[in-house]
C-alpha cells in the first residue's frame, strides 16, 4: 500500500496538469519554430498516427492503476496483426470477423496471464514478460515475414471510412481510438469495476477485507489490456494493410513511459486515462518536432523520452515528499502527534 501522501488531492492532480502544460508548451514551441507546424492538420495528424498507441495505452493504464504491469503489449499487437493477416489472406476470412476473433483471442490471452498472476501470486512483471515472448514467437511461427493484406474492405476502410467535421477529416482509426478512450474513461470512473481497479491499486489488503472482488477485477484488467492491445493490432493492420510479426517492438515501454508522464504512479491507485493520453500525445509531439527538425536522427527520440521520464518521475517524487511534509503539519495542527 502506498503512503497517504501519494493519494491526497494535491498529489493526484498536479502531475497531470503539468503534463498538459508541457504538451501545450511543446506545441507552442513547435509552431513558433517551424512553419506549417501550427495547423489543425498537424495536430490531427498526431492523433491519427498515435491512435493505435493510444488504444494500447488504455488497457495498460487500467492494469497499472490496479498495481500491475503488462509487458506483452507490443507482442500482442504484432501477434494480432499476423493472425488477422493470415486469416484474411490465407483463409479468406472477411477482415471484420477476423478482427473480432483476434480481439477475443487477445482478451483471452490477457485473462490467462491475469489468472496466473492472481491465483499463483506470480509477479506480474515475470508473467507478462513470458507472455511477451510467447506472443511474439507465436507470431513469427505463423508468419516468419510480413505479409500484405489485399481485401476490398480494407481499402474502403482506410480511404473512405472517414467522418468529415468541418475542415477536419477523421479517419476510422481515430474514431475507434476516441470511442475506446471514452468507453475506458467511463469504465474507470463510473462503473464499480473501475472503482475496484483503483481500490486494488490503493490498498489491496483493504480491498480484500472489504470483500471487494479483487481476483475477478484483476483478471478483468489484464483481459481488457489484452483486448485493447489486440484492438490496437487490428487498427495497425488496417492502416499498414499488412501483418508484420516484427512490428511494435518496444511498444510496452512507450506506453509505460506515456503513462508515467501522464501522472500514473507505477505502484498503482493514482492516475487517469486522460493523463496517459496526454502522455502519448507528448511523446508523439516530440517525435514530430524531431521530424520537422530533420537533422537529428531517431536516436534523439529515445534520449528525449528518457529525459522526460526522468523529469516526470523526479517531479512525482518531489510532490510526494512535499505532500508528506504538509500532511505531517496538518496532522500535528489538528492535535494528533
Amino acid at each position: 500500500m502506498t503512503s497517504d501522501s501519494t493519494h491526497s488531492s494535491g498529489a493526484r492532480h498536479l502531475p497531470t496538469m503539468i503534463a498538459l502544460t508541457i504538451l501545450a508548451a511543446l506545441l507552442t514551441f513547435g509552431s513558433i519554430r517551424f512553419d506549417h507546424f501550427a495547423s489543425v492538420g498537424t495536430f490531427a495528424g498526431l492523433f491519427h498516427e498515435y491512435s493505435f498507441v493510444g488504444i494500447a495505452a488504455l488497457g495498460t493504464t487500467l492494469v497499472i492503476l490496479s498495481g500491475g504491469i503488462d509487458l506483452s503489449v507490443g507482442a500482442v499487437v504484432a501477434c494480432t496483426s499476423v493472425i488477422i493477416a493470415s486469416l484474411v489472406e490465407r483463409h479468406g476470412v472477411h477482415p471484420l470477423p477476423a478482427s473480432a476473433i483476434a480481439v477475443a483471442l487477445g482478451a483471452g490471452f490477457g485473462a490467462a496471464m491475469g489468472g496466473l498472476i492472481e491465483r499463483y501470486r506470480l509477479p506480474a512483471f515475470l508473467v507478462t514478460l513470458a507472455g511477451m515472448f510467447v506472443a511474439r514467437s507465436f507470431a513469427f511461427w505463423i508468419e516468419p515475414h510480413s505479409i500484405s493484406v489485399h481485401h476490398p474492405a480494407y481499402a474502403w476502410a482506410s480511404m473512405s471510412a472517414v467522418l468529415r467535421v468541418g475542415e477536419l477529416t477523421i479517419p476510422l482509426r481515430t474514431m475507434i481510438f476516441l470511442g475506446a478512450a471514452a468507453l475506458t474513461m467511463v469504465i474507470a470512473h463510473a462503473t464499480p469495476f473501475g472503482r475496484y481497479v483503483y481500490a486494488i491499486g490503493g490498498n489491496e489488503t483493504g480491498a480484500r477485507r472489504m470483500s471487494l472482488p479483487v481476483g475477478a477485477t484483476r483478471i478483468g484488467t489484464y483481459a481488457l489490456a489484452g483486448g485493447c492491445s489486440a484492438l490496437a493490432g487490428a487498427v495497425f493492420t488496417l492502416y499498414k494493410q499488412a501483418g508484420d510479426p516484427a512490428s511494435a517492438v518496444g511498444l510496452e515501454l512507450e506506453v509505460i513511459a506515456a503513462a508515467v508522464i501522464g501522472g500514473i504512479l507505477l505502484s498503482g491507485g493514482v492516475g487517469t486515462i486522460a493523463g496517459t493520453i496526454i502522455g502519448v500525445l507528448i511523446l508523439g509531439t516530440i517525435r514530430l518536432l524531431i521530424d520537422f527538425q530533420g537533422t537529428f536522427n531517431a536516436a534523439w527520440t529515445s534520449i528525449a523520452t528518457g529525459v522526460l521520464l526522468l523529469l516526470f518521475v523526479g517531479l512525482q517524487e518531489i510532490i510526494v515528499r512535499f505532500e508528506r511534509l504538509r500532511a505531517r503539519a496538518a496532522r500535528a495542527a489538528s492535535g494528533r502527534g
Binding site: 507505477l266 529515445s302 521520464l309
Partner: peptide, 15 residues
Amino acid sequence: VATLILMVAGRGIAQ
C-alpha cells in the same frame, strides 16, 4: 523506473 530511464535513453545514446 530508474533503470527504465537508462534503458530507454541508452539506446539513443549508443546510436
